[in-house]
Design a protein around this nucleic acid. Structure first.
Length: 222
DNA sequence: CCAGACGTTGTT
DNA sequence: GTCTGG
DNA sequence: CCAGACGTTGTT
DNA sequence: GTCTGG
């Protein structure tokens, strides 16, 4: 799993209804959302922000230069609580990264077949995410960055890929978004046991494999 | 103590 | 910032 | 993550 | 092979 996700079909009203949020930002629908584009995110309770402002890949506030952790594009649920890179964010800078679905490439016989994966109930997915703010000592430039947490694939996903993003359920949102809550053992429990049978998937064309491509064709069933 | 690392995926 | 390795 | 580029000079 | 852009 990586940053290739889709916001196809999400609207502000849908987000309000599903996430119990009072205000949302205006944003653009995208079928093939790459890490730096319009991925909505909820940061803390009742405060939803456009992830466009965020850089994909967590840059911890203590990083000497902003490129040092360019490859922290995912965090593993199994270790996120203990890793120096994530241990601060996991305590008080958790967020939800919202999408209607994501893509994963199944490799067999050396060929890659992309799949579109989404909730069977058609609701938006809420990925468990982390964020942080990094400031340049010299220029004062501030960069907000984020990442999502991955876990072992559910039995449904296994045929396609070994890992998948942590998809949180509605009853978890409040706890996950509460910056005061920092019982890391409880948080880890939430992450490592993904709910089964929540997702549905179908193969899509290779059109989506080029991240410059966007539009309905990305999620058309083959 | 100080210095240096701090990450994941996928592929080999 | 905080942990690990030496 | 995957796909695609990977370069410079001079001219508009 | 490795980096960049999306």
């Amino acid at each position: 799993m990586c940053g290739r996700i889709s916001t196809a079909g999400i609207s502000a009203d849908i987000l309000k209804a599903h996430f119990d949020i009072e205000s949302v930002f205006p944003f653009t629908l995208s079928y093939n959302v790459v890490p730096t584009l319009q991925i909505p995110a909820i940061i803390e309770q009742n405060n939803i922000r456009k992830l466009e402002a965020f850089r994909w890949g967590l840059i911890p506030h203590w990083a000497r230069d902003k490129n040092i952790m360019a490859t922290a594009f995912n965090a593993r649920a199994e270790s996120v609580v203990h890793k120096p890179l994530f241990r601060e964010s996991i305590k008080s800078k958790r967020c939800l990264v919202l999408a209607t679905g994501f893509y994963e490439w199944q490799v067999s016989c050396g060929k890659k077949q992309p799949y579109y994966i989404f909730r069977a109930d058609k609701r938006p997915l809420a990925f468990a995410g982390l964020w942080d703010v990094w400031e340049d000592d010299v220029t004062g430039e501030a960069i907000e960055s984020c990442t999502i947490i991955t876990t072992a694939a559910t039995h449904q996903m296994i045929p396609i890929h070994e890992r998948m993003p942590v998809v949180l359920e509605r009853d978890i949102y409040d706890t996950w978004l509460d910056p005061e809550f920092n019982e890391t053992d409880v948080l880890q429990e939430l992450l490592i046991a993904p709910k089964q049978d929540v997702l549905e998937m179908y193969p899509v064309s290779n059109y989506v494999s080029n991240s410059r491509n966007d539009g309905e064709e990305c999620i058309e069933r083959l």
